[in-house]
Computed example of a mutant assay.
Amino acid sequence: MSTSVTNPIKKRLKKTILCYTLLTVFFFAGSRIYEHFSFGETSAFMHYLFLIPLIGGTLLVALQLFVKGLSRLSLNLWNSGVATLTAGALYRGIVNLSGRSTTMDQPYYYVGFAFLALALISLFFVRSIWVEKIT
């Protein structure tokens, strides 16, 4: 008979930190490369695109440290919110760099913030079974 000594809460926290760090670096480098080849056009949405996963990941890590036993539902809703906000900013940045303007990105922000709000609301109703025992 064997028992696992890995702590799933710490494992999830490390995975969250790694994923959001890689996403931030990817969007930082990708937006700079895309702007470099945009023939002098600039877009604040594209330039600061990396801040969305950076801030979202930082808040999620803080949330995981503060709320022990963060549920999978809360985590998925939070990740969906950050992904939707990032997609909206990316869409707006690409359209702005092409020399046009649009308001078609607004639904992305409404849905993204709705996901984030649902994630925060779900903290009060759902708990994970991976709660550390206090000894």
Rank of each mutant, 00 (worst) to 15 (best):
L23K: 01
T16Q: 08
G56D: 09
I33A: 08
L59E: 02
V95T: 14
A87Q: 09
I52Y: 15
G88D: 14
A119N: 10
M46G: 03
G112A: 10
G81E: 04
R12T: 06
A44K: 08
G93A: 05
F28K: 06
T24E: 02
P53K: 05
L18M: 01
V25K: 04
L54V: 04
F28A: 09
R32H: 02
L54K: 04
S101E: 11
A29P: 00
T84V: 12
R92G: 06
T102K: 11
L90M: 11
D105T: 08
P107N: 01
L70V: 13
R72F: 10
K68H: 06
A89E: 12
C19T: 15
I9W: 14
N96R: 09
L65V: 01
D105L: 02
W130T: 14
G40D: 06
K14T: 07
A44D: 09
Y48C: 01
I121D: 08
Q106D: 07
M104Y: 14
T58C: 13
T42C: 00
G40Y: 05
S80C: 10
L59R: 03
S101W: 07
K14D: 06
A89T: 15
V61A: 10
L73H: 11
I134K: 15
F27I: 01
I134W: 14
A119P: 14
A29I: 10
I52R: 03
Y108L: 08
F27K: 01
C19L: 10
G88N: 14
I55E: 04
Y34Q: 05
Q64N: 08
R127T: 09
R127F: 05
C19Y: 11
F26T: 07
L60P: 01
